[in-house]
Amino acid sequence: METDLDNTGAWRTYSNSMIEKEYSPLYLIMDYWLMLKAPSFECVSHWRKEQEHKLAEKTQGTGTAVMSDSEVETFIQHYQRLTEHSLEHVPFISNIVLELESQSKYFVRQRTGAIKLYRQLIIFTDLDGTLLDHHSYSYAAALPMLEKLQEHHISVIPNTSKTFAEVQQLRNELALQTPFVVENGAAIYIPDGFFDQPPADCELKNGYWRKAFSRERNYWLELITANSKDLDGAFKGFSKMSDEELSLATGLSTIDASQANDRQFSEPLHWLGTEQQKTLFSNRMKSAGANVLQGGRFLHISGQSNKGIALRWLTQEFSRQNTNTQFKSVALGDSFNDNDMLESADIAVQIKTSKHDFPKLFRTDAIWQSTKMGPKGWAECLDQILTQELQI
């Protein structure tokens, strides 16, 4: 069928796209899997033809929707590749498999726990105001918990507005060997060799597999200029600021400020104008296709990417690479630009801050709120979650 009817790959591309974008996020929220397993794809073909024959008998040949055997063959071939893949792989990740007999189609035997599914957490964490103190950028209060997580082989994934260079430095300090997400979900970096197999749909760059979700920075700089000609003085972008100016605005050293400006996919703006001007500018940028996020300090302009999309994609990749492990995602953040990540995770943790109340979430379940701020609150909630989820 793919050779004769789909030689451009349109159907294959479409079905793969739907699985990635629509089905896979749904799979991640499933708690229990029960599979009705056909003996083979040939049985699926035979059973579908039987259905059509019975429908033809019932309608005495007047049913316009009845397919001939050849039409059935053509129709089901659209799903053959994925069905055969499922028959081979899905039993090993299902909680219960009901195997069907080829002639009667009745259940003949049950296999429970084909392979034991191990439960494991993945920790996705914001940095500023969450793992790092909002004012001092210290992570000292989180170190004992980080050691505990590493001891139990629980991956800690920075999911941050920071740049590749900034996260690299922090990972070295904390001895993290895990993937990380930069610039508010614009790209995921996975160390080469972290997974047994190369991750899906990524390019290898400087020792990392990179999955990009956004256009590069220059595109957004041009768009910002085009949509702010009447807003002179209302903001100043990182690209227009010296290291010294950035240092004053962020509290970072000039060296660290330079790393913060080494951006690949986005442009943070130091807003100086009114809220009315900000709303006007934000609406223009959104209409032009940009994603506008208000962070703890700056207004971030990037593509239609966010921390939640990155979390879902990477959690799915963990599951794809480790079929005998049932992963549960935990997201921790303190600000409004963490909401997409918190909404997407299995468990959402809001870290207390002195700057504002806990941001409002649409979800109403599996929400934790710290009583302490920054890394102290980070460790506080994770300690309770580890006890509840894994009894450690």
Rank of each mutant, 00 (worst) to 15 (best):
N184R: 07
N184V: 11
G185Y: 08
G185R: 11
A186W: 04
A187G: 12
A187W: 08
A187R: 07
Y189M: 07
Y189K: 06
Y189F: 14
Y189T: 03
I190A: 04
I190W: 08
P191S: 12
D192V: 13
D192G: 03
D192Y: 04
D192P: 01
G193E: 10
G193V: 14
F194Q: 13
F195K: 05
F195S: 04
D196E: 13
D196M: 00
Q197W: 02
Q197V: 06
P198E: 05
P199Y: 01
P199F: 07
P199R: 00
A200Q: 14
D201W: 00
D201M: 06
D201N: 14
D201E: 10
E203P: 01
E203Y: 07
L204G: 06
L204H: 03
L204T: 07
L204W: 09
L204I: 05
K205Q: 13
K205D: 08
N206C: 00
G207R: 12
G207W: 11
G207A: 06
W209K: 11
W209Y: 15
K211P: 06
A212I: 09
F213C: 04
F213D: 04
S214A: 15
R215L: 09
E216F: 05
E216Q: 14
E216A: 00
R217I: 06
N218L: 11
W220Y: 15
L221Q: 15
L221E: 14
L223Q: 11
L223M: 15
L223R: 02
L223V: 12
I224M: 02
I224Q: 01
T225H: 12
A226K: 14
A226C: 06
N227Q: 15
S228M: 06
S228A: 14
K229S: 13
D230V: 00
D230L: 09
D230H: 08
L231D: 04
G233W: 03
G233E: 00
A234E: 09
A234F: 05
K236G: 04
K236V: 13
K236L: 02
G237T: 03
F238T: 02
K240Q: 15
M241K: 04
D243P: 11
D243H: 12
E244R: 11
E244Q: 14
E244F: 10
E245L: 03
S247F: 00
S247I: 08
L248R: 08
A249G: 13
T250G: 06
T250W: 03
G251V: 07
L252Q: 02
L252S: 01
T254H: 02
D256C: 08
A257M: 12
A257K: 01
S258E: 13
S258P: 06
S258F: 10
Q259T: 01
Q259L: 15
Q259S: 02
Q259F: 12
A260Q: 01
A260G: 12
N261Y: 03
N261H: 00
N261T: 05
